[in-house]
Design a protein around this nucleic acid. Sequence first.
RNA 1: GGGGUGGUAGUUCAGUUGGUUAGAACGCCGGCCUGUCACGCCGGAGGUCGCGAGUUCGAGCCUCGUCCACCCCGCCA
Length: 586
Amino acid sequence: MAEARCGLWARPFCGQLRAADAGRRVELAGWVRRRRDLGGIIFVDLRDREGWVQVLFPEEPLKSQAASLSHEDVVRVVGTVRPRPADMVNRELPTGEIEVLAEELEVLSTAHVPPFVVEDQVNASEELRLRYRYLDLRRPEMTRGLLLRDRITFAIRQYFHEMGFVEVETPILTRSTPEGARDFLVPSRLSRGAFYALPQSPQLFKQLLQVAGLGRYVQIARCFRDEDLRADRQPEFTQIDVEASFVQEEDIYTLIEGLFARIFPLVGIHPPERFPRLAWSEAMERFGSDRPDTRFGLELVELGAVSATCSFEPLQRAAAQGRVKGLVVPGGAAFSRKQLDELSEAVKPFGAPGLLWFRKTAEGYASPAKRALGEEGVAAFLAAAGAGEGDLLVAVGGPPKVVFAALGALRLQLARQLGLLPAHRHDFLWVTDFPLLEWDEETRRYYACHHPFTSPHPSDLERLESDPASVRARAYDVVMDGVELGGGSIRIHDPELQRRVFSVLGIGEEEARRKFGFLLEAFRYGAPPHGGIALGLDRLVMLMAGRESIRDVIAFPKTTAGNCLLTDAPNTVDEAQLAELHLRLT
RNA sequence: GGGGUGGUAGUUCAGUUGGUUAGAACGCCGGCCUGUCACGCCGGAGGUCGCGAGUUCGAGCCUCGUCCACCCCGCCA
């Protein structure tokens, strides 16, 4: 290589030296991870992003110099790589077969005592880690996350490029659109009283790029949503945003299955060639979730019929007015009173009043509803659920949404509790046939389940106005191990159909023209049929890195209150800045 | 908006029924030590118990408020 001209770039990373480098004279630069001063000899672990290597200072005057080094000092070392004596090899370390005998030492920067020890095994609070994020990111497991994220995004770009996709950047300063999440707003200085909004996703732009004839678009795009945070939700996050012309659902499935086949092997996971499909309604009925974790059983059972004819009034009523479903917990008959109470508490946040349990043990049938149901009644429920002796049946009744949410959550809790989650199995699947619309009782109107540009299923089109809730969408989600990795749809490209959908959504002609006029107009000038998908990159990397929070794979994340502890953002601004923006605080 | 958990030395934590001098480990400082790799050994320093009120003879501990972090529900087309 061009070592003579690019000597600096040829310098090896500390963590990459191996036995094969023995005999090499190297210049290293890095951070002092640890110093072991044995008096007559000093060992220094020199760390960079790739790992660390042991540097040896056996003789004066270098030894005295090394003696003054402390944690996180930045140094340059020139030395010779040599094999360690056979009985001094450290098998735990990738660099453990060699060490560097120092010949030169230069302190480039001294470090204050860090607020926490920069090591994987220190458990400094996340608050402190976020305040000193640059120190936190020096920890190998954090560095690994950033490096993995880089390899993943690189592979993604490579894949889409090979597939004929073009990466196009779309505006960050754009306009607010109705529906969806709360917008982040940016006041305009030049247009008094007007605001830009940060994009919730590049949705409209990627559709316009199809009208523009790009055909295959991809962008690793930052998106912004001003909603409350979670372990898997940040106010700004990254989407792998994809859109293509002349495609059907199957084309998108193939594309994403190919992408996953490319990237998951980076972490030793090998997805199946084709992912199973599950209709939304089936996912809800069997798993109580539109992003089911199919790695274990514990599927929901139907108790509507047995409830309707039973003599326990609350369940009878629930069956008549809503749904009654349950879960069979194998061996759960042994659950204590306290455990049963905990299960009951667990469903309450979802709007269920509690749950009813049934069991048969050697002592006989038991249930809180036994007085009303009698032995045969309890037996009928257990039989309907296919529960045997020693099993526990739990039932929830109520509106479908509540029943599914409660049992879906309970199913996951029980799986964790009973250790049913397999460690090395990963399930990928497509959830298809989502409903197009969802009725909202509070505002007395329909909302788009996916977004208002999603194409209705052609065979359901005739019911769009007469029975909107029954119309299926050409929408799909890709799910891994119970996590929604992304979702998309085949879009509407016909201005007339788009108007019909807007109308069902209660968006009138005038409002549609005002807010989406540019899209409707664009569709008049030759719009190709198109569709796409967006994948949550942060979640994807989190899963691949085996981390529990997307904060762990974002270099500078916000806290759950939306604060950046490092920069102390958000913060106040000068009066003068506000005045320029024609803003006044109330 | 609602519910839960936590906040004590630089860090991670312990701290009994409210009791007089708030502890441990790691880190830090000084000393010794030639094959360590969580080096070891000896010695030492280090505290606004998140913040503000209140109860009490007396509060790290009880009460109220408040701030911060984390988890969940709502919210997130």
